[in-house]
Design a protein around this nucleic acid. Structure first.
Length: 110
DNA sequence: GTAATGACCTTGG
DNA sequence: ACCAAGGCCATTA
């Protein structure tokens, strides 16, 4: 019953390589709905409700801040997962975010 | 059907 | 440079 937008977001997020992160705006822009950046975050709300599960922990805001870490059940779950991906987190913020940033538009180059 | 909310981003003061 | 407000689209109440 999920809208196509949700599915598209899940697809892109699932394509995020290990040890990489992206932003909601980037996904929204890739889908051609840069104005609907909020919907991307909203879609992540259902990320745990779809199959297979979507690595929403690899998705952060434009500042590289783990804004949705509170939605993982535990406020430290997202950071733990990111650290597992060799991604360093400093003050709820991704270190070298620009280097770890994975842009679907550039990588997938649709 | 109307109103409010949201894991955001952009622009104005 | 910093702080505040608006916009955008879908879901939920």
């Amino acid at each position: 019953m999920e809208s196509d937008f949700f599915d598209m977001v899940f697809q892109v997020v699932r394509l995020i390589p290990k040890g990489r992160v992206t932003s909601y705006g980037a996904i929204a822009a890739y889908l051609g709905a840069k104005s609907s950046s909020r919907l991307v975050g909203y879609a992540m709300n259902n990320a745990h409700a779809v199959k297979p599960k979507v690595p929403a922990h690899r998705v952060v805001n434009r500042n590289g801040v783990l804004t949705g870490k509170h939605h993982f059940g535990t406020p430290t779950r997202m950071q733990e997962l990111l650290e597992k991906e060799k991604i360093k987190i400093k003050n709820d913020q991704v270190v070298d975010f620009e280097k770890k940033f994975w842009d679907p538009m550039t990588e997938l180059a649709l």
